[in-house]
Design a binder for these strands. Structure first.
Lengths: 220, 220
DNA sequence: ATGTCTATTAAAATCGATTTTATGATTTAT
DNA sequence: ATAAATCATAAAATCGATTTTAATAGACAT
């Protein structure tokens, strides 16, 4: 639905608040995969009535984070190695498409935005006050955000969330690999600036798959 | 959400019934693009309370058929030439991926299912008791259904619906082009049977774009 | 023991009423 | 005459209570 989690923002409605909260709880694995989501429990936890909660859960259904069984309520979507691999593969394929189009439409303005969001993300790595995760997502979406295809971007955003959920679940708060993730991001930005599609594409997919190979060991 | 419209099925819950009904009303354009969807109106039309309707609308939001404005209710998603072209392009790109994978995984069983669903669709063209639209969708999903990627299939299904909505809106009940659509379908099946990926791919995309060129003249 | 039926409980689904919020009209002030 | 403020109305959002449905345990028969 929305691009980023807005846990800190003032929520304009009970439904919106429940949506954000539940989304975060599921993404981070506090509500575990497959867990039954009882309305009454959530009512207590979130302090709102049944209606907003049911609406929020319905919204999360389309995000594939919640599964609805008619007359039998809701539960958090299951996870599996197969699903994770599918997500990974799809991200590579769809983001390749979006990245290609973005580079084909390249412009100074867009490149500057990429550089900027990369900078902000980098800064957040050392400043714990900033929320790195949000900026990381923003960076990756910006990278493919010049493709002029909002529906495609929506799919990519959804896949990003599904993917990050596995990262959280695989290792709750594992020190997000000091690894060479930083270098990988920089290389991608460089390739984009040079409009080198093949290189950018290859680097991006490798970036995903390397992280994926790490995560996959910890699923279940 | 679900694969096909199930207007004729006995609905197991008010929410499910409202979802199916509203989905159909929007797909066929009876609820026009951009139209405000007032809860009380819909309550009367569908004869259920506010809660199921709001839930159904929330579900439709993820299908991109409904747009939700916080505190300002719901409305049917807008249409535009740009959106239509985007849908068309995405269908070609995503279905290409799914079709390739399907053919790579080809099996006798799958080919037989393709042939069968093609046959059923063909029969429905002459028998008005059968619902051609449902079988048409089933055929196209079956064609890409051997790709072993349920998430991708979900995206394709969603794009199919968004696309068919334009067909309905462009010409309510235009005689679904006696044209060479029939031949086009047959050619695709033949290419699939022969595992000729490039040909199948090309035919499928042409099929979409030819129809698209027809529809686009009637948007708005 | 195993399976089927019934009674009980827990939860989901839904409704009707209430509260909150936006919208549009009317007024007031500049 | 335009802009800001107030009020009235219509609609959305939400709540608490009720109804419906599924899950569970226990009784009974085979």
């Amino acid at each position: 639905m929305s691009i980023g989690p807005t846990s800190s923002a003032i929520e304009s409605s009970a439904t919106q608040g429940a949506y954000s909260s539940l989304r975060l709880l599921i993404l981070t694995g506090e509500l575990a995969p497959g867990e039954k989501l009882k309305i009454d429990n959530l009512r207590e936890i979130l302090g709102v009535g049944a209606a907003p909660i049911r609406e929020a859960l319905s919204l999360l259904t389309s995000d594939q984070l919640v599964v609805r069984q008619d007359q039998r309520g809701f539960r958090a979507a299951e996870t599996s190695v197969e699903n994770f691999q599918e997500i990974l593969e799809l991200r590579c394929q769809l983001e390749s498409i979006a990245l290609r189009q973005s580079i084909e439409n390249t412009s100074e303005a867009w490149i500057e935005e990429v550089v900027l969001s990369h900078h902000r993300m980098t800064r957040a790595e050392v400043d714990p006050k900033k929320n790195f995760e949000i900026l990381h997502k923003a960076f990756h979406l910006k990278l493919i955000g010049n493709c002029n295809s909002p529906v495609l971007l929506g799919f990519c955003s959804q896949l990003y969330d599904l993917n990050i959920r596995y990262r959280y679940i695989a290792a709750r708060a594992f020190a997000y690999e000091a690894r060479m993730v930083r270098d990988e991001h920089q290389s991608i930005v460089d390739a984009v600036i040079q409009s080198d599609l093949n290189k950018a594409n290859q680097l991006l997919c490798e970036h995903y798959k390397t992280t994926g190979a790490f995560v996959i060991k910890y699923i279940k």
